[in-house]
Design a protein around this nucleic acid. Sequence first.
DNA 1: AGAAAAAAGTTCATATCTGATTTTTGCAAT
DNA 2: ATTGCAAAAATCAGATATGAACTTTTTTCT
Lengths: 284, 284
Amino acid sequence: MHNTSHIAQRLLTTYDDMPRGERKLADLLLEDVGVVGQFTAADLAEQAGVSKATAARLFRRLGYGGYRDAQREIREARSAELAAPQVPALSGGTLSPGEYLDAEVKHLVRSFEALPADQVTEAVQMLCAAAKLWVVGFGEDYPLALFARAMLIKVFPDIRMIPLSGFPVPEEFASIKPADTVLAFGVGRRNPELRNIIGSSRRAGAKIILVTNTLAPGDKRGADVILRGRSDGPTLFGSMTAPVSLITYLCARVASRTGDSAVQRLQHIESIHSQWAEESSSNE
Amino acid sequence: MHNTSHIAQRLLTTYDDMPRGERKLADLLLEDVGVVGQFTAADLAEQAGVSKATAARLFRRLGYGGYRDAQREIREARSAELAAPQVPALSGGTLSPGEYLDAEVKHLVRSFEALPADQVTEAVQMLCAAAKLWVVGFGEDYPLALFARAMLIKVFPDIRMIPLSGFPVPEEFASIKPADTVLAFGVGRRNPELRNIIGSSRRAGAKIILVTNTLAPGDKRGADVILRGRSDGPTLFGSMTAPVSLITYLCARVASRTGDSAVQRLQHIESIHSQWAEESSSNE
DNA sequence: AGAAAAAAGTTCATATCTGATTTTTGCAAT
DNA sequence: ATTGCAAAAATCAGATATGAACTTTTTTCT
């Protein structure tokens, strides 16, 4: 019943009712609720830039007797997690479009609100300056990676997808060079392969942009830029909406920076498209 | 220079520093900053459930002399927008996150507003009742189709993707039966192959759900249910955000309808995942 | 077991926020 | 110009949130 994200769940549902100070702490916790098990309340308070009292109040508001209760729950959940895998909450009854839309809009707003402008700029620069682009996304992140590639291919001629179905990853990835940039997606389940990729890229001296959701503690090390997109939704599945919007924005910025050459390339693509259309219609 | 979402921009950057009441109003405005031009401060305050005074304070905090200033700015921007017919692709300068977010949120809201409840219900029923599911998406729609598949595979054991790389479409598609349901994506460029698929499906007697962005009168023929998601954006690329959100909702409804068996399947998937995780970590 | 240390919880004065009320402003009609 | 009126801004008292200092509980070490 209870699992790690019980706290995360409550943080999200209560978030709107929190005062500013508590939100600052909540933001910290949403990045990785695991820290509750590892640090003292005072540590967390300090890191969030609020007083201990505020921390105490937050956990009260969440419905716990106190910090210790929450800590105990996290630790129990942690060990239980290994025994019985968690299943995302399936809200009973039919989810109304209104509720859903509301949650989606909030995700979007929060994601963009939490997006540091300089990080985006840096990511854009890294993408534009790259000798070669690598787009990486395993498992649930694969569709996301495909999206990114579909957009970027309109601007840059040469983009490598990882994984490339049918080809072993290490061999493909061997040719990465220091001047390259890697755009990696780690929104879904934590993936050891992704970590390997990030590690290898780092060792090769390449730049790394990681798009992830809030709960990704360990993967931090290694990426030059991290873009966070909220993805926990009211549905059975995580919501990829915010990440999709985020990378669309990123790609738009890249295209706008690339400027004229991007437009030329697009026109070229259009002309090829219409040629194909003519041919296929004349064949019909 | 100034555009509609100078306000949206400021709302975003200031959001962190706002008290709760002002945030409630900010959330409302972020859904559509245009309302500032159409309503009085009192109206907006009432709709957001805060007092007029709070509204006044918000606009102060945003840096305006008062509500009137903000209103004037919005109206000027509005008329300037009409005067200079929007340059579709790369508006000069950098696309601000505020503008972009504003457009995305509008897309989402509009898409869901325009979504007929009975159509969704019908689509859900068709998906649940299907003997076999086919997910179709060519070209730019391929990532979308992958998204849908990634979610539906958690609920249904057997889903066919079209196109399947390396296999000719007609051969793959030959085995479609009247009891099957086809979930087709036609958001991007109009694709002759998609038409063929829809045609073939119809002739085979299968049910068809089409997710698209256009009113496309011609494509109506054939699809039993049509779900529209806005996709024209302020960016060089179309925005897939609304369609992504839409199918996530659709799949959530499907999962919620399928109920217990979906949960069981998810648990099974989770257990397989954790087995894999254990194995790979013990190998390291 | 008992003292020292550390962490959690509590209190209270201060600062901040909020909505009802009052005052001012802008605008139209005369 | 003046008046009337509706809407916006300022005011203020009550409510709420916050951090510093303080007390209690738990842990640790001898």
